[in-house]
Design a protein around this nucleic acid. Structure first.
Lengths: 157, 157
DNA sequence: GTCGCTGCAAAGTCTTTGCAGAGAG
DNA sequence: CTCTCTGCAAAGACTTTGCAGCGAC
């Protein structure tokens, strides 16, 4: 099973916190804390990638070959995590969504149209302008996302 | 059939141009100019909405009940138009894409999470920052898009 | 024990594809 | 005429759902 607490790298504490928050959230809503949910959260946390439901499922099967987690459970858990604002989904031109932990700092994305890689960035200036625009238009902003499409350094060879 | 040239409102000239560009593009690629393609382009132009393939198809069926345009043709034409950079697709959290004419001025989107309505805006400041960021990260920018999610004025009642 | 959760498979969506006939150039 | 395009229906890809047994609390 997911032996999370033995992982004493830099991010361990963050994860413990995340996990704890998740447990509290579950309890509040009379939901159950299951191994599947734990593994999905941990895998999302461990992976720096932006994962599709399918790639997340594959990753989990690699890491825990003995466990059989159904793809349906992955979808159900991702929906739950998204509703709870623990993860965020990104959808690009391509079909399907990618998920990432939303608890990490907010950021925007540079997406390479050649290799599909995603680079993250934050720009305070843009964040501020977004607030202003929403205000000006009487819009009650909940969230925002920005993508820049182009060709990344590596693919410009 | 699509009696486009009799539409003498403000936007007619723009449309004539658009149509012409499209014809040239088709010729260049040894593709054919068909009634279906014309109607799809015209409907996209006439509608101020951001259309899904399905809603576009419905609109066309309303406008031209005698013509039977298959949904497959709508998809195929939208792909063609997108490849040719005549339309742009937006994909949000929800499933499915929405298309809009890309020839119009660039702009970003405010999306209401209640009613799904889309408001457009442009902010020069943000545009500039985006260029800077792409440059700084060695990214060859081709395009970008920004969405602000929240609750629109009307839905805040 | 209860009641939510899971895996499986079946059912839904949305989108793409194969094909024979229609139609643009 | 040729060769692309179209509509139809079938196939695909991705996601959701129903259900019986399992497992957290």
């Amino acid at each position: 099973m997911a032996n999370i607490t033995t992982n004493f790298n830099d991010r361990t504490i963050e994860y413990e916190q995340l996990l704890n928050d998740f447990k509290i959230l579950l309890k509040k809503n009379a939901l159950k804390f299951t191994i599947q949910r734990e593994i999905i959260l941990e895998t999302l946390y461990t992976s720096d990638e932006h994962l599709t439901p399918e790639s997340l499922h594959n990753l989990i099967q690699q890491k825990f070959p003995k466990l059989k987690i159904g793809i349906a459970t992955v979808y159900r858990t991702l929906s739950l995590l998204e509703e709870s604002n623990i993860v965020t989904s990104l959808s690009f031109g391509a079909q399907g969504k990618k998920y990432e932990l939303g608890a990490k700092n907010h950021h925007d994305h540079l997406i390479c149209t050649e290799c599909g890689s995603i680079t993250e960035f934050v720009d305070e200036e843009i964040e501020k302008r977004q607030d202003k625009i929403a205000n000006k238009l009487g819009f009650n902003m909940q969230d925002h996302s920005m993508q820049i499409y182009g060709i990344c350094k590596d693919c410009q060879n």
